[in-house]
Nucleic acid binder design. Sequence first.
DNA 1: TTGTAGGCGTTATCAA
DNA 2: TTGATAACGCCTACAA
Lengths: 341, 341
Amino acid sequence: MAEKRLTRVTSFDVAEAAGVSQSTVSRALAGDPSISAPTRQRVMEAARKLNYQVDENAARLRRGKTGTLAVVMVCRPGQDRKDLNPFYYALLGSTCAAAAARGFEVLVAFQDSPENFWGHYQERRKADGMIVIGTSENTAAWDYFGALPQGSHWVCWGATQDDFPWVRSDNHAGATLATRHMLVRGYRHIVCLGSETSPQRQFKERYDGYAAAMESAGLEPVLQRIERGLPREEQGRRAAVALIESGRPFDAIFGVSDEIALGALKELAGRGLVVPDQIGIVGFDGVRAGAWSTPPLTTVESDFEVAGSLLVDRLLAMISGETATARRVPVRLVVRGSTRP
Amino acid sequence: MAEKRLTRVTSFDVAEAAGVSQSTVSRALAGDPSISAPTRQRVMEAARKLNYQVDENAARLRRGKTGTLAVVMVCRPGQDRKDLNPFYYALLGSTCAAAAARGFEVLVAFQDSPENFWGHYQERRKADGMIVIGTSENTAAWDYFGALPQGSHWVCWGATQDDFPWVRSDNHAGATLATRHMLVRGYRHIVCLGSETSPQRQFKERYDGYAAAMESAGLEPVLQRIERGLPREEQGRRAAVALIESGRPFDAIFGVSDEIALGALKELAGRGLVVPDQIGIVGFDGVRAGAWSTPPLTTVESDFEVAGSLLVDRLLAMISGETATARRVPVRLVVRGSTRP
DNA sequence: TTGTAGGCGTTATCAA
DNA sequence: TTGATAACGCCTACAA
């Protein structure tokens, strides 16, 4: 075999080597059925020998399609990349996997503030469409993406706006699952640490799911509000403090996110309250960190693989003009140690 | 302002609207200084009004450069994306940030086994070069990337091969830092949970750093080997069991990765040993999970921002034929609760 | 300072 | 079944 080198080889070179025309090379390699088997053989052989690879830029220019999807990760302004919620990284990973499985390349960009908001992938022919993943806290980002020109192909995870092309976890079902689990395990005075007014749409949905489960058990739902603008862990910790100081009796906590639940867990443990014996705790997100707490956190986890697939499929449907289907990602309960047996 | 829509607008359209030639448009928008101010004004105005954006495929085809870097994330075969070590996600994030800061787009692909190994970004003109990030465990992947044609521009994080164009944490310094910290805090019988033969080159480097610090303190380094092929946490747990059962006295553990240290921490706690009072523990990686353990894990953290920058700068230097400089990423000690004050 | 023209390497149309 | 040929939209000599 010839030594592999990186000199530019065009389809003309392959054509010459195979003794056919350039267009035949293009067709043979593209799998055009009109090319005869022996010709295809010769072309493939020549291409292999010359180490030929299609110039994607030329191909895309000609085709008018890029075969690429853009994924924009919306972060908090100035936030360190290593502090990004692992949930979003998992979502990024599964989205890339789904795109790759469908034959698309993925362009990734982290964006956090107006200076670097940028969504013109489609106009610049860098991608056929865009997936925006991020926290609803960054309202400036959602305003920006919501104002993209008509005809932009995009879907999102995390926006507050209900008229955006969103995909979300089945928050209601997940919260109900969590609450029922605690009821079954004998907890009665279950308090929800969260918010019904947060821009985080899913927090409201999770509260509603919790409330529904409580009510259908004949119990009164109780919401302990988190303060805005703090790190999640701190929100959870403070809400736990406020709850304790309120004097309201409780024997279980449903945190609308894992980090809120973990913050509360830490606070309770620090005060000598025994989890799960005295107090049960359940979170929502299924991030890895929960597995390391003491006790490990019982939580509701989204099916990440499905999440990535739904985002990609919805986007591809939009691109091809079809009508998309599901937009809710199924969830499951992950029972660990923060609720009693 | 005209309603924004997504119909294709070419530089010819802008030229017509501005009453100049197409090449003038190209130059004006590229910031060519030969274009007069008034002309540039008119062109910019027309471009804005028509919502014109350059077709990057055409531009790249013409230029022969892509302005894009590819990042390949090497995972364990079949591993779920959400189970990928958060360390690598943080590295991915900071690499994307560094690339963006230098004006490059980033193409991301997760690859785990021979069926989907693919590194011909450069030949296909999808990218100007490639950054491969991954665990050294996946030797098949490193064999694949090591066999890329001459002239491929790439750098990597995580490979075993020393002749690869690698960038790494300053493992030796970090391990020394960790060990000295424990010595200063009064621990004497410090055992290293790790391996000097693992394909993970950094494990060996970390052991060496630990051993050097021990020896220069007049103490004997002790290595408790981890078993191969298990999840890191389990490796840590089992090594702790083996250490205890060996009967060898110890009052501190240096785990060559956070997850190994966390596994050991869990095992010790389960046996009623008090961390940090009876036993001190330090890990290596600085992942978020360590902050949630009880007690939170003292660890050595790489400067992720520098890591991303070094990877990108080294690759860009290679592309432009310059000689690259640093390849070691500085580390710092993050003191949390698993070592006594 | 600006315009003309050629070509980057494909894919796709139209003949043969 | 294959070959000529015309775009795709831009950048960049070269000329004016």
